[in-house]
Design a protein around this nucleic acid. Structure first.
Length: 279
DNA sequence: AAGTCCTGCAACCGCGGAGTA
DNA sequence: TTACTCCGCGGTTGCAGGACT
C-alpha cells in the first residue's frame, strides 16, 4: 500500500506562481494566519496543493524573507554550520534570520560547493580533498585551509563558540536567540515584518523576467524616517487589532505620508496595484 | 543572429516524524 | 499498538536567462 498523496492532484495547478495566486495566498494568511496548510488552497481559492502553498509562503512570500545573495558573513556561517550539522538545511537556516532552507541549499549547491572544491576542500566532509596525483599541494597549505573551514577543529584557535557534539545535540544550538524550532504557528497578529531596507541585490538579482522572481514583497520597507536601528531585526505585532493592515484594493489611498513615524505604534502596510507592499 | 551549453533558482516529490483517534 | 493525517525536510527536477560558440 503506497502512501496517499498529500492532496487530490486532479485539476491542481503546478509550476510558477502568478501574481494573482500570490495575492490570494497573502490575503488569506494575513487574514487567517498560518494554519492547516491542507485547507489553505480551498479556503484561499487556489488550485494548488497545501504543500505548494506552504512552500511558496515560507520561501518567497513571507514578509521577513531576505532576498539576494548571501553576504560573506552569512556564507561563512553556512559553511561553519554545515560542518557541524551536515545537510540539515532547515537547522542551518534557523541560524540565519530571513534566509530559507531552500535558499541556503541552493546557494550551497551552486556556489559554496564549487568554492570549496576550488580550495581543495571536500564539501561533504570539510576535509582536504585527496589531491590529484599530478598536483599535490604542500601539506601545510591543505591543513591551513582546513583550519579556516572546519570550525570544529579551529574552535580553540578562534575562540569561537562551538557546540560540543559529544555533549549536546547540535541541532539544539541556540544562536542569537533565534531558532526556527521555537517559532510558533504564526497567527494573524504575528505577521513578521522585516525592517531591512531592500538590498540592492534583491532588486537586481532577478535574472528572470517571470513573475515568480519578482517578489511581491520586494519593495517591503518602512517609512523613510522610520528608525530602523531600533527595529533592526524584526518585530512582532502584539495585538492584531493594532495592525493597521490595509489591502488597498482600490489603489487610491496613500497612507505613506499621513503618519509621523514617532507617532506610529504599528506600521501601516498597503498593498499596491503591483502587489508590492508599502508602509 | 542563431544555436547550444551552462547556471541558478523556484518548485516538486517522496519520505520520515509527530500527533491523534 | 496500529493506522492514519498532516507537516516539514532534503533531494531532485525543470525552466528561464545568460554565456559561449
Amino acid at each position: 500500500m503506497g502512501r496517499q498523496p498529500c492532496c487530490d492532484k486532479v485539476g491542481l495547478k503546478k509550476g510558477p506562481w502568478t501574481a494573482e495566486e500570490d495575492r490570494k495566498l497573502i490575503n488569506f494568511i494575513i487574514t487567517n494566519g498560518q494554519c492547516c496548510w491542507r485547507a489553505v488552497p480551498k479556503l484561499a481559492g487556489l488550485l494548488r496543493c497545501g504543500k505548494s502553498c506552504r512552500l511558496r509562503w515560507t520561501n518567497y512570500l513571507r514578509p521577513d524573507v531576505k532576498r539576494g545573495l548571501l553576504s560573506e558573513y552569512e556564507e561563512r556561517m553556512v559553511i561553519d554550520l554545515h560542518a557541524q550539522l551536515g545537510n540539515r538545511w532547515s537547522k542551518i537556516a534557523s541560524h540565519l534570520p530571513g534566509r530559507t532552507d531552500n535558499e541556503i541549499k541552493n546557494h550551497w549547491n551552486t556556489h559554496v560547493k564549487k568554492k570549496l572544491r576550488k580550495m581543495g576542500i571536500d564539501p561533504l566532509t570539510h576535509k582536504p580533498l585527496p589531491p590529484p596525483e599530478s598536483e599535490k599541494p604542500p601539506p601545510e597549505e591543505a591543513n591551513k585551509v582546513e583550519e579556516v573551514i572546519n570550525p570544529a577543529e579551529s574552535a580553540n584557535n578562534e575562540g569561537k563558540e562551538i557546540v560540543d557534539n559529544s555533549k549536546s545535540d547540535p541541532t539544539e544550538i541556540v544562536n542569537n536567540d533565534f531558532c526556527i524550532d521555537e517559532i510558533p504557528v504564526i497567527e494573524p497578529h504575528e505577521i513578521l515584518l522585516s525592517c531591512d531596507e531592500p538590498t540592492p541585490s534583491s532588486s537586481s538579482s532577478s535574472s528572470s523576467s517571470s513573475y515568480s522572481q519578482t517578489n511581491v514583497l520586494e519593495e517591503l520597507h518602512f517609512l523613510p524616517s522610520f528608525d530602523s536601528e531600533i527595529m533592526m531585526d524584526s518585530m512582532w505585532f502584539d495585538d492584531f487589532s493594532g495592525l493597521d493592515l490595509l489591502i488597498n484594493d482600490s489603489y487610491q489611498r496613500d497612507y505613506s505620508t499621513s503618519f509621523e513615524p514617532s507617532l506610529l505604534q504599528y506600521p501601516v502596510m498597503v498593498m499596491d496595484e503591483d502587489y508590492s507592499w508599502n508602509f
